[in-house]
């Protein structure tokens, strides 16, 4: 992946905003990769969790707000449990979903779930999914 890294991006408000929203020390990550190693959903992801963190540290807003990864987090907290720096990636993914929401993106809203699944799915799954969409 080709990326332009500038001091303007690295020091942008975006980095501070992600840290504020998630309450996580984004810049504390030293890329050991334990989060990606333990994540059960990497197979479906376009970039892995540790890459999302690295790109966020570098202010690559466009890349992280448009990746599939932040929508494939099942909030199982395996990443945060194993992180040696105590960073919870599920909170960073939530902050990134939140920041991208102004773009009118609906990934897991009611219109994206097949009706036969809605009929049989447990209520808790519906509530969780819609919360992920910020509903």
């Amino acid at each position: 992946m080709r990326a332009v890294i500038s001091t303007r991006q690295v020091r942008s408000e975006f980095v501070a905003r992600v840290q504020d929203l998630s309450g996580q020390d984004l810049l504390g990550c030293y890329q050991c990769g334990k989060c990606s190693a333990g994540c059960p959903m990497t197979e479906e992801m376009d970039i892995i969790p540790s890459q999302v963190i690295r790109l966020s540290q570098l202010g690559q807003e466009e890349d992280v707000l448009n990746c599939k990864t932040i929508w494939l987090c099942a909030t199982c907290y395996q990443c945060g449990t194993r992180c040696p720096k105590g960073i919870d990636f599920s909170k960073i993914a939530e902050a990134l979903r939140y920041l991208g929401m102004g773009k009118e993106k609906e990934v897991c809203g009611p219109n994206h779930i097949p009706t036969e699944i809605i009929a049989e799915a447990p209520q808790q799954a519906l509530v969780s999914t819609f919360r992920k969409q910020g509903l």
């Binding site: 059960p40 959903m41 197979e43 099942a74 199982c76 395996q78 799954a125 999914t129």
Partner: peptide, 19 residues
């Protein structure tokens, strides 16, 4: 203690099936 795919079974059912 591995995740079963959780509520992704609604938005990404194939991922939940694999998990």
């Amino acid at each position: 203690s591995e995740c079963c795919g959780s509520y992704l079974s609604l938005s990404a059912p194939d991922a939940a099936t694999r998990a």
